[in-house]
C-alpha cells in the first residue's frame, strides 16, 4: 500500500534530485573550468572592510531571546539540583499513574 512506501518514495525522489543536481554541476564545470584566485577566498562585504571578528553571529543572544519569549527559563529553574524535589516528582508521578490505572481498570 502507498503508506508503506512513503519513506522510500521520498528517499528515491531526493536521491534522484541530488543526482540531477550533481550532473548539472559537473556539466557546468566542463563548460567553464574553475579558476582559483586569491580574491575569491576573501570575505566580500559590498566594498567595505570587515574584520572577521564582526562576522560571527552572536549565538548566545539569539537563543536567549527565544528562551525568554516562550518562558523556557522556568523549566530550567525547576531542575534545581535539590534531590528532594526530584524524589517528590518520582513519588507524585507514581501516585498519579497508580490512581489513573486503579480508577479505570
Amino acid at each position: 500500500m502507498i503508506l508503506g512506501f512513503l519513506p522510500l518514495n521520498i528517499a528515491a525522489v531526493l536521491l534522484f534530485l541530488f543526482a540531477v543536481m550533481g550532473l548539472m554541476y559537473w556539466a557546468s564545470r566542463k563548460v567553464r573550468p574553475e579558476k582559483k584566485s586569491r580574491e575569491k577566498e576573501k570575505i566580500y562585504a559590498c566594498g567595505e572592510n570587515i574584520s572577521p571578528g564582526r562576522l560571527e553571529v552572536p549565538y548566545e543572544s539569539f537563543y536567549r531571546i527565544l528562551i525568554r519569549m516562550f518562558g523556557f527559563e522556568s523549566f530550567k529553574r525547576w531542575h534545581s539540583g535539590d534531590i528532594n524535589d526530584y524524589l517528590t516528582w518520582i513519588i507524585t508521578g507514581m501516585v498519579m499513574l497508580i490512581m489513573v490505572l486503579v480508577l479505570t481498570w
Binding site: 499513574l97 490505572l101 486503579v102
Partner: peptide, 20 residues
C-alpha cells in the same frame, strides 16, 4: 492495577521518561 502502576513507574525510571 496497583501492581502494574508500581512496575511501570519503576521501569520508566530507567527509561528516563518525564517525572522520572
Amino acid at each position: 492495577p496497583l501492581g502494574l502502576g508500581l512496575l511501570l513507574a519503576g521501569f520508566l525510571f530507567k527509561a528516563a521518561i518525564f517525572p522520572f
